[in-house]
Design a protein around this nucleic acid. Sequence first.
DNA 1: GCGATGCTTCGGCCGCGGCCGAAGCCCCGG
DNA 2: CCGGGGCTTCGGCCGCGGCCGAAGCATCGC
Lengths: 231, 231
Amino acid sequence: MPTNAALAETAALIGDPARAAMLAALLDGRALTAGELAAAAGVTAQTASGHLGRMTEAGLLAMERQGRHRYHRLATPAVARLIEGLLEVAAAAPRRAVATGPRDAALRQARTCYDHLAGRLAVAMADAMRARALIELTPDGGAVTPAGQDFLADLGIHATPARTRLFCRPCLDWSERRPHVAGVLGAALCSRCFELGWVRRRAGGRALEITPVGWAGFADAFGIAPEAVRG
Amino acid sequence: MPTNAALAETAALIGDPARAAMLAALLDGRALTAGELAAAAGVTAQTASGHLGRMTEAGLLAMERQGRHRYHRLATPAVARLIEGLLEVAAAAPRRAVATGPRDAALRQARTCYDHLAGRLAVAMADAMRARALIELTPDGGAVTPAGQDFLADLGIHATPARTRLFCRPCLDWSERRPHVAGVLGAALCSRCFELGWVRRRAGGRALEITPVGWAGFADAFGIAPEAVRG
DNA sequence: GCGATGCTTCGGCCGCGGCCGAAGCCCCGG
DNA sequence: CCGGGGCTTCGGCCGCGGCCGAAGCATCGC
């Protein structure tokens, strides 16, 4: 069965420490240069180059040249979901010296996932929006209600020209095991939160810091209690 | 970051041709003996034994001894979803000598996925049930309506003691890219279809054959037109 | 008890593939 | 046009891990 071989090939591609580190570094949806990815993986530029080429050819990554830099990002949302799924079953595996440090706690609170928000913050946002009937979520799509349109407009998100599919995919994140808003709407919400200064990238990785303005904003606009998001 | 290492380890585990073949063989949710899996992977018993041990220890597989046989199955639904996700991105990769044969066509029509039905048949069933408001599907759960309870009872599925979570997870299958009913309800529907003789395992693998009785039953109970399911 | 069958453990062979140094290519700024 | 930085290609080293033969346990049938 040829489809089996492809399965193994793809998994093997992800199953190398250096490549896995690169993929994890890209999981927040940003595009990074080859050099940055080499550093993230702890290998030299030439080694990284080989890895990046293979992953791009296999359709895991997409590459874009910009001047003398080459920016690499995850090729599709499906790849991001796949990596998250891998993290999920890896985390469910028998605990081997886990040492759940503060970095993990920060990740669980708020992070980016591909192009949208994840973690307790994102789940709370999705819950709040559903509770107020601003959005509906179905497994294969989702919709913004008229009330939701107004709400989003108030937030400063006007994107939606009538039939844009502002879908939500579960993107069941590995920490919360509950869905949050992904898709076009998720991306719009995420970038708006950045614009408003509600969240900010933390130094070390893809964990996000919620600013004082953010806590106020989330409470105000979404009715989110800080203690529901804080560890 | 220790979580990265776990990611690579898990992926590497899946990324071996022999192990991938075993996992693919288990994807339909049955439990197979070590010998059968060795044959499926095309390796000797002792090699297979090593692979099975490692996958079990990593939480990918679960094992159960029965007499002098040891039955292995996927440890959790999450593992099944992961493999399907892997197949999805592997299939999306640049076509390399695909040769989409009749086996693929059969798989696309109807197959089992872990413990429930997948393929066009399963998607049609989910669509039909939602269209008639027999079930609701949300990304993190799902519900059977009162009308749905009656419908299921007519089908011979009485399982549901009040608050049983008959959840649906998208299980977005790689062929249809649309959700179908998984979870407890999915499993119940699947086994009931077998009991009723509506579907039958095909010789070669996890593709299912829809019997004449089945075509009639699906049309009758779900209003599914055969041409919506046939290739 | 004895042999057969199913599975696991041990030991050793071997090849795939990741790694880096060196060299080459491309694109930029001056 | 030239120097420099980012990235890729080439070549060779080396170790991890998959593979099997042989031997060791377990379980069943008789």
